[in-house]
């Protein structure tokens, strides 16, 4: 049996955090089914990444080709679909990231298999069947589904599972130089534009300080930046302030932006519109700061401060700095 695979997504030589979260869950599932846990890497010169994955998987599959150096849906699809069709894993898990959400639905179509996107739970039921849980209607309900066939393609929301612990055993690394028919690669990636620099993506952040129109002026986001910095977090934004051009699109939390699941979420000066809540309601702990006691965000918070953010936020940053010894 080819086992359970985790798609090890990487950018600029760094593995995505969600890869390790999935390797943790993957280990549990693989053990439960008596299967091998594999990590699958696509790219060029993958040795350092394979080495990094080694303590977490039984086997690391490296699919190498100069055509896989930069992500191109067509090229990745060719490599991954032929390799999976050959090896027939029972499941391939990936994070529900931009890249996987571009690649895996196409893979499902190519392999003529099912796919579950934005999973919040994967369990092994009696009889060795996987039960997948995902939100629908923006999280107002959950649905539990099972696959009729394998391989099962599953995209999991980042930060749903804790990261795996490294083991003393090392994985076997199998390297394949893959041949990709250039005529099958119809897409051309002309340019990759990095706009966020070294900043942690909000979907991977432990702490998010999110601001809305209550900040009154783009300049005032400095207050949130300061609080986020003390906590090692990042700043998010609502649709309203992104649309107003105060904050970049990539920082938008909500239905038309990103879905986040941090350990600690500060909702500052934002009302908590439904489309916002949909993007953050799996956050572990939520603190809402808003002057309006009727703001819906309080219904989605663990701790509510009905207060002036301009008084509370700087104080909070200052006190936390002392508290955390920074």
């Amino acid at each position: 049996m080819a086992g359970i695979w985790v798609y090890a997504e990487h950018h600029d030589g760094k593995l995505k955090k969600v890869t390790f979260e999935l390797l943790g869950k993957g280990r549990e599932l693989a053990q439960g089914r008596g299967e091998e846990l594999g990590a699958i890497l696509l790219g060029k010169d993958l040795d350092p990444l394979a080495e990094e994955l080694s303590p977490y998987a039984d086997r690391v599959h490296c699919l190498e080709s100069p055509m896989l150096e930069v992500y191109n849906c067509d090229a990745f699809l060719e490599a991954l679909s032929s390799f999976s069709a050959e090896r027939n894993p029972s499941m391939i898990m990936a994070g529900a990231t931009y890249q996987a959400r571009d690649l895996f639905p196409a893979l499902a179509g190519r392999l003529q298999k099912g796919i579950v996107v934005d999973c919040l739970g994967v369990e092994l039921a009696d009889g060795g069947r996987f039960l997948l849980r995902k939100p629908i209607y923006g999280g107002k309900a959950l649905v539990e589904v099972a696959f009729k066939e394998e391989p099962q393609l599953v995209l999991v929301r980042p930060r749903t599972f804790p990261p795996a612990e490294p083991r003393s055993e090392r994985a076997e690394v199998s390297k394949e130089q893959v041949e990709i028919d250039p005529t099958k690669v119809r897409l051309k990636v002309l340019e990759v534009m990095k706009t966020t620099g070294e900043k942690v993506d909000i979907t991977e952040a432990d702490v998010i300080v999110c601001g809305g129109r209550g900040l009154k002026d783009p300049e005032n986001f400095k207050l949130l930046e300061e609080l986020a910095e003390v906590l090692g977090g990042v700043v998010g934004a609502t649709r309203a302030v992104v649309d107003a051009g105060w904050r970049p699109q990539e920082d938008q939390v909500g239905k038309s932006g990103k879905t986040v699941s941090p350990n600690l979420y500060f909702a500052v000066g934002l009302s908590g519109a439904v489309h916002h809540v949909m993007g953050m309601d799996t956050s572990k702990v939520v603190v809402a700061i808003n002057r309006d006691p009727m703001a819906p965000i309080f219904q989605y918070a663990d701790y509510g401060l009905v207060a002036d953010l301009f008084q509370v936020v700087p104080l909070l940053a200052e006190e936390l700095k002392k508290e955390l010894g920074k």
Partner: peptide
């Protein structure tokens, strides 16, 4: 390719705890 088994209520967050007082105490 998928079989729907059941629909489930999302887990509810416990009721919000309001923190009262003047800003320094609140913080």
């Amino acid at each position: 390719k998928l079989e729907v088994l059941r629909y489930i209520e999302p887990p509810k967050r416990r009721a919000v705890k309001y923190i009262k007082g003047e800003p320094p105490e609140m913080v």
